[in-house]
Write a protein that binds this DNA or RNA. Structure first.
Lengths: 279, 279
DNA sequence: AAACACAGTTTCAGTATGTGGAACTATCAA
DNA sequence: TTGATAGTTCCACATACTGAAACTGTGTTT
C-alpha cells in the first residue's frame, strides 16, 4: 500500500486483460450472463462461464437478487432476470428520445402503407430495433424492441452505416461478422463498402434478400440537423408480395418520415427545459 | 467530518427506494433516478434528489455511462437510460417464464374473444403488466409491458392479492395507496379485504369501474400447482360495449387459460436440464 | 449405512476499491 | 471584475469487496 506515490497508475493488477471497472461492472456482467443463458440458469452454469470465483459470483448474485434485478426460483434452483429490469426498460424505451419522437410517425407510415415498419438504432456496430409496426396482425411488440440484428445485411443497418463519419464507419465495418445468411449477403468488407457508397449517395438502402431469403427492405437513415446518425427506419416486405422496385417506390415517403422523426427528436431534446427546475 | 453512519441500516430490504449498502445498489438507485425523471436529466437534477455526495454520484454515473446503462448527450448535458438496458430487458421479457408460457395462450384468448387481454405479475405489491393483446388495433406493446398499476383497484391486482398467503396479503394491502380513482374505487383496506374474500372464494375478480370510469374487467389468478400466485390474467372491456355480467360469462375461459399458463410455466421451469453437465 | 461427489453457502483476514470533503475548472450573469 | 452555479478532479482514508478454504446439504454410488 504505497500511499505517498499512490497517484501512479491505476494498476489493474495484471492478470488477463480484464476491464477491472468496478463492482458495478462485474454485477452487470453477471446480469448479462443470466440474460445470455436465455432461460433460467443454475449457479454452476453461471460459474463455469464466469471469470469470478465461486464466492464472488455468489455474492454478486445475492446483491442482484435483493435488488430485484434477478429472480430466483427456489424449487428449480435457477436464476432468471428480474422484474426491476422490465420496469427500467419500460422507462428506457418509453423515454428514448428517438422512440418517443418516432412513435406517431411510425403509426402513420404503417397505416398509410400497410407495410411492416422498423425503427432501429446502432448499438456497438449492431442494429438494435427500437420499435416495429407489423403489416398484418397485432404481434407482441416487445419481442422485437430490444432485438439485435446484423448491420451489414439489413436495410436499416446499411442506411445507418453509410451515413456514419468515416472513422466510425470503418470501425463499425471492422466489427461486422459477415456471416453469409443467404446467397445475396454482402459477405466481405469491400462489397459492403461499395454498397454503402451507393447508399450514402442516394440516401436509401436496400436489403435484397441479404438477411433472409424472400425478405426485402427499403431503409433510410434518421439524421440530425448536423448530419449525425440518430437511427434508421425501414419498410419490410416479401418478394411474394412485391418486387424490390415496387417497394422502392415508397422511398420518398420513408425519407420524409425520417426527416420528421429527426425534427421531432431534436425538439424533444433541445428545448430549454431549464425552466422547471423542481422535480 | 464523520460520515453519519452508526445507523447500521443494514436492511436487505431492497425494493421500493430502499438503500441497502453496496456499490451495486447505489448504482442501481441512480439508474432508477434517471428512469424516474421520465426524460433526460442533468447532473444537478439528479444530485438534488440523490442521497449521495456530488463526487460519488458523479463516479456512479460515469460507471453506468461506460457500461452503457445510461447515455449522455453532450450537447444538452443530459443523462438518459442506455441501450444496454433495452437489450437486457428484451431478454428479461422474452424469457420471463410466465410471459413465455402465456404468449400463445393470450394469443388464443384474444383471437377467440376479441377482448383486450392482460397478463400481469405482482411486483412489490403493485401490478406489473407483462403482456397485452389489444382488442382492436395493433398497439405498440412495449408501452404496456413494464407498466405499473395499482393492485387494489384492478382486476388482475385483486385476483393476485386474494390468493396470496395471509401474511403476504396483509403486507401487500398495507402497501396500497387507496387513491380514489373513481367513485367505485375500494378506498380503504377493509372494503378491499371484504372484496378479496369473495375473490378468493370464487377464483374470479372483477373491476367494476374501480380504476377508470367506464372500464370493467374480469380477472383470474395464475396459480402454480401448489397454489403459489404466479400472476394474473384479465379481460378488459367497457360499459359501452357490454355489462359486467356479460363480461363475466367469459370467466370460465379465463380460468382455463390461467390453468394452462400455469402448467406451461411449470413445465418450462421444471425439466431436469441437469443432463448436459459438460459444455 | 457409510463414503463420495458435487452444488451451494458461509467465513474471514487482507487489501483493493469506493468514498466524499474540498479544491478546482468552466460557464454564465451582473 | 466578481459572484453564483454546474461539473470535474484529487487524494487520504476506511469501508466493503475479494476469494481461498472450510462448511453444509443433497443426491448417488458402493
Amino acid at each position: 500500500m504505497q500511499r505517498e506515490n499512490a497517484h501512479s497508475v491505476r494498476q489493474t493488477n495484471g492478470r488477463s486483460g480484464a476491464k477491472a471497472d468496478g463492482t458495478v461492472a462485474k454485477a452487470l456482467a453477471v446480469l448479462d450472463a443470466v440474460a445470455a443463458a436465455g432461460r433460467p440458469v443454475r449457479f454452476v452454469d453461471l460459474l463455469n462461464d464466469a471469470p469470478f470465483p465461486k464466492a464472488t459470483l455468489y455474492r454478486l448474485l445475492q446483491t442482484l437478487l435483493s435488488q430485484g434485478m434477478v429472480q430466483y426460483d427456489a424449487e428449480s434452483q435457477r436464476y432468471s432476470l428480474g422484474l426491476r429490469l422490465i420496469r427500467l426498460a419500460h422507462a428506457a424505451w418509453s423515454q428514448s428520445s428517438l422512440g418517443d419522437a418516432a412513435r406517431p410517425v411510425l403509426d402513420a407510415l404503417s397505416a398509410q402503407t400497410k407495410r411492416t415498419v422498423h425503427l432501429a438504432q446502432l448499438d456497438n456496430a449492431q442494429v438494435l430495433y427500437l420499435d416495429k409496426r407489423n403489416a398484418a396482425r397485432p404481434v407482441a411488440m416487445f419481442s422485437d424492441a430490444g432485438r439485435i440484428g446484423p448491420a451489414y445485411c439489413t436495410g436499416v443497418g446499411k442506411a445507418m452505416l453509410a451515413h456514419l463519419p468515416e472513422r466510425e464507419r470503418a470501425d463499425a465495418i471492422a466489427k461486422q461478422s459477415f456471416h453469409e445468411y443467404t446467397p445475396h449477403t454482402l459477405s466481405d468488407p469491400d462489397a459492403l463498402r461499395a454498397n454503402l457508397e451507393d447508399v450514402a449517395r442516394t440516401g436509401v438502402a436496400y436489403d435484397r434478400e441479404e438477411h433472409e431469403l424472400g425478405i426485402i427492405c427499403v431503409a433510410a437513415p434518421v439524421l440530425s440537423r448536423n448530419g449525425v446518425v440518430l437511427g434508421g427506419i425501414s419498410f419490410t416486405s416479401s418478394v411474394h408480395r412485391e418486387s424490390l422496385a415496387d417497394l422502392a417506390a415508397l422511398a420518398p415517403l420513408l425519407r420524409n418520415a425520417a426527416a420528421e422523426i429527426a425534427e421531432r427528436a431534436e425538439s424533444i431534446f433541445a428545448p430549454n427545459v431549464t425552466a422547471g427546475a423542481a422535480e
